[in-house]
Design a binder for these strands. Sequence first.
DNA 1: CTGATATAACACATATATGTGTTTATGCTA
DNA 2: TAGCATAAACACATATATGTGTTATATCAG
Lengths: 74, 74
Amino acid sequence: MTKVRDRKLLTQFGKHLRKVRIASGLSQEDLANDSDIPINQVGRIERGEINPSLSTLNSIAKALESDLSHLLDF
Amino acid sequence: MTKVRDRKLLTQFGKHLRKVRIASGLSQEDLANDSDIPINQVGRIERGEINPSLSTLNSIAKALESDLSHLLDF
DNA sequence: CTGATATAACACATATATGTGTTTATGCTA
DNA sequence: TAGCATAAACACATATATGTGTTATATCAG
């Protein structure tokens, strides 16, 4: 796992992403398909288990018809 | 390296980061110290060679006295 | 020319994200 | 109950970010 000092950031982002995804009416599978990211990866991100990369975040933002700046406003 | 389809994103972000850093009057070494990220890593990010993680981006944003949302508005 | 500053470019070990696959758990509904 | 959808939880291989060092290059000031 990631450093202890980053866990809060990751769990916060995970909760935010889940909220945004559900607000968009998408399942994890939908988001996985639209962003071309494995569904397991989506779940791990929402649970705050991993530290996603810039390109992964960008793919998710696009699938949510949003942009990086808005996705990371949490 | 990262997938071909991500190179443009990474080089774009690298250029943006360099612009923001210089506008803040910081050297790579300054930013490295303030963000607690190795200076080599800062250089690699600015050159678009790597795909930085959310926590790395967050550390950089804080060192620039900014936030993720603003740092990723490019 | 010399020294200082800043950046690039190497090498290398280690941690971890990514990607794929399978299995389990949970809630809902017919 | 059975079936379906959704999400969590595993395992595993591979790619790559991270972190630490060292060396090279370029620019500029003295």
